[in-house]
């Protein structure tokens, strides 16, 4: 079985899990949430699940030890015993839900999906256009940064050598040509936009339509968040 939902629904679903992880105060509820996140991951891509578990498990072990044994050193410590197994488990499960969801978000949501979601939520087109162009040109800036760094290294300059202050100073030599490059690119980009006769009001008029499954998933997400707020914060039920 493969999960076939729109990018807008996917983003909303993932954000809902993260929000719920911070609202829930019950270990069992959190456990269900965490399992849901890992199940979605398995449905999307089993390889991703394996990679995530490999990365997340050491972090969860450290989190469990820290929150269980050293919670009295936390700046949020509000009394109670020094060792608290329940609290350690609760924080670890919460962290696992947030990490798994973030992992899905970073691995599967492409910049284009994010732009579609912004358009769907009726954000100003100008802002969405700028966001789209920014995403489009991130790799250009990253390439320029890498090339400048390589050129400096090829001239015998060791960027990552010396004290922290010296290293920060070293990086100023990367910033100047990178800024020049960015300004040049911005000029070219504005010229290219002029040549294409772009009208902001026309940008992204034909966004995708939602299926029945999308609407169902979105509705469940909203109901869960509302239910969690009523249950935990307002005290209904």
């Amino acid at each position: 079985m493969k999960l076939e939902i729109s990018c807008v629904t996917k983003i909303l679903l993932l954000l809902s899990i993260i929000i719920l992880a911070f609202i829930c105060r019950d270990l069992l509820h959190l456990l269900i949430l965490s399992l849901t996140a890992f199940s979605i991951m398995a449905l999307l891509n089993r390889g991703m699940l394996f990679n995530c578990v490999k990365i997340v498990i050491p972090m969860l072990i450290v989190a469990f030890i820290t929150w269980t044994l050293f919670r009295s050193y936390s700046i949020f410590y509000a009394g109670g015993g020094d060792v608290d197994w329940y609290f350690g488990s609760f924080m670890t499960v919460r962290l696992s839900a947030v990490l798994a969801t973030s992992f899905i978000l970073v691995s599967t949501v492409k910049p284009l999906d994010l732009i579609k979601a912004l358009l769907f939520f009726k954000l100003p087109r100008k802002a969405v256009l700028v966001a789209g162009l920014t995403f489009r040109h991130i790799h250009t800036v990253a390439n320029d940064y890498r090339t400048i760094k390589e050129a400096l290294t090829s001239k015998g300059f060791e960027l990552d050598k010396g004290s922290l202050i010296k290293r920060i100073k070293n990086y100023s030599l990367v910033i100047v040509p990178l800024l020049v490059r960015c300004i040049e690119n911005a000029e070219k980009l504005s010229l290219a936009l002029e040549l294409r006769g772009i009208k902001i009001e026309n940008y992204g008029r034909f966004s995708e339509k939602l299926s029945g499954l999308d609407i169902l998933v979105m509705t469940i997400c909203v109901i869960c968040i509302v239910f969690a707020i009523l249950y935990y914060w307002i005290g209904v039920f």
Binding site: D144, S154, V180, E184
Partner: peptide, 13 residues
């Protein structure tokens, strides 16, 4: 080993 990169504008500092 000297390396002359393609676009000189990128390397002037």
């Amino acid at each position: 080993v000297g390396f002359v990169f393609q676009d000189p504008d990128k390397h002037i500092i």
